[in-house]
Amino acid sequence: MRIAHLSDIHFGGENAEAVAAATQCLAADHLDLVVVSGDLTRFGEKGEFASAAAWLKQLPEPRLVTPGNHDAPYLAWHDRLFTPFARYERAIGRARFQTHLSPGLAVYGVNTARGVQPRANWSKGQISEHQVEEALAWFAAAPAEALKIVVCHHPLTEMLGGPMTGKVWRGEAAAKAFAEAGVDLVLTGHIHAPFTWPYGYGDGKTYAAGAGTLSIRERGVPPGFNIIETDAAEMRVTALAWTGSKFESERVWSLSRR
């Protein structure tokens, strides 16, 4: 099985050459799923969403796309307060959750972004107990042998030494619940750097994996995206980095399956 994982395109501040090259790479690939884990726009502006929607139509199907914190309007305060993901839903699709089910693969997208929060930094993440329960109920009805993947924008646990934090409220509890339920991968973005690590819960075979950015908002890491290849024994996550003229493999992680 072969999955592409992209994140943090930030249309309005995208790296146009890297986006175009990534689009060509994906169009020429043989993919079972394309995942985009949020922050399609820079400020949640209507024109940015139009660009994001046009780009998504160029990507192979099937696709699963979940919103990020930048996909709530930054400047339209009424919309941000009362309908933070209305623009996203008009242009892209459902914001609250997303699902994909195909032979051997079960993927559930969770919205960890919020328009407003009772803390100063609204860019950080949240995941409610109800959201976790809904995801686990959906996985319980999926075929037991399927590769189980959660997609959300914010890393549920912090990347050690990462360029920024997610500080997801209830993130640790969600990571524990997903691990104990046998989820295989949790795919995220937000920090603009690729990574993998195992959650320290359950049997140790649930892994977090993050994709970088395709925007000009680099945080010490070149623009890029991930390719995930799986078989019965392992999941291989390859971080592809933009050199200015092409994508090259920057790092490969081999994650053993349960």
Results as ranks from 00 to 15, higher is better:
Ala193Cys: 10
Ala120Phe: 15
Arg42Lys: 07
Val35Tyr: 05
Asp32Thr: 01
Ala146Asp: 07
Thr41Ala: 11
Ser7Phe: 08
Gly182Val: 15
Ala174Trp: 06
Ala18Asn: 03
Asp231Met: 09
Ala28Gly: 07
Asp29Val: 00
Lys148Asn: 12
Leu147Ile: 02
Val252Trp: 10
Ala211Thr: 06
Ala21Arg: 03
Asp184His: 14
Gly182Lys: 10
Met159Thr: 10
Gly13Val: 04
Gln117Phe: 11
Gly93Ala: 11
Ser7Asn: 06
Lys176Ala: 10
Leu160Pro: 12
Met164Lys: 14
Gly224Asn: 04
Thr243Met: 11
Thr206Lys: 03
Leu240Phe: 11
Gln126Phe: 12
Arg170Gly: 14
Glu229Cys: 07
Gly200Tyr: 00
Ser123Tyr: 12
Lys205Thr: 05
Trp197Tyr: 06
Phe139Cys: 07
Leu31Gly: 02
Trp77Thr: 07
Glu17Ile: 06
Asp8Glu: 03
Leu40Glu: 06
Val221Arg: 06
Asp184Glu: 07
Ala141Lys: 12
Pro155Cys: 08
Gly115Gln: 05
Ala137Gln: 12
Leu6Met: 15
His153Glu: 04
Asp203Glu: 01
Ala241Asn: 05
Ala181Lys: 05
Arg219Thr: 06
Pro84Glu: 09
Val132Leu: 01
Glu180Thr: 13
Glu45Gly: 14
Arg80Phe: 09
Val19Cys: 10
Gly189Thr: 10
Pro163Trp: 07
Pro223Asp: 00
Lys57Arg: 12
Val168Ala: 04
Trp55Cys: 15
Ile149Asn: 09
Asp39Ala: 02
Arg94Gln: 14
Leu31Asn: 06
Ala177Asp: 04
Val107Leu: 08
Ile127Thr: 12
Glu129Leu: 04
Pro67Ile: 13
Pro163Gly: 04
Ala53Trp: 06
Tyr108Glu: 14
Tyr207Thr: 00
Ala28Phe: 07
Val107Thr: 13
Glu134Trp: 03
Trp253Leu: 04
Pro222Phe: 07
Glu48Leu: 12
Gly210Glu: 01
Ala76Val: 13
Ala179Gly: 01
Trp253Cys: 06
Leu214Asn: 00
Thr165Ala: 11
Glu17Thr: 00
Gly12Arg: 00
Ala177Lys: 05
Leu105Met: 10
Leu136Phe: 02
Tyr88Trp: 11
His192Ile: 05
Gly161Val: 06
Thr157Pro: 09
Val116Ser: 14
Cys152Asn: 13
Leu156Gly: 10
Glu134Asn: 09
Arg251Trp: 15
Ile149Val: 11
Ser123Cys: 15
Pro194Ser: 04
Glu133Asn: 08
Leu40Gly: 04
Ser102Pro: 04
Ile227Tyr: 10
Val34His: 03
Pro118Trp: 13
Gly47Pro: 06
Gly115Lys: 01
Gly104Tyr: 12
Glu45Ser: 12
Ala27Ile: 09
Ala54Arg: 12
Ala233Gln: 08
Gly220Thr: 05
Glu48Ile: 05
Ser215Asp: 02
Ala106Trp: 13
Gly109Lys: 11
Ala142Phe: 09
Val19Arg: 00
Pro60Ser: 07
Thr238Phe: 04
Pro118Met: 12
Gly68Tyr: 11
Ala18Ile: 09
Thr213Asp: 00
Arg236Tyr: 09
His70Leu: 06
Ala140Glu: 11
Phe49Leu: 14
Ser7Arg: 10
Glu180Lys: 14
Leu56His: 03
Ala54Trp: 13
Ser7Glu: 01
Ala239Arg: 00
Phe43Cys: 12
Ala53Phe: 09
Arg251Ile: 15
Asp8His: 13
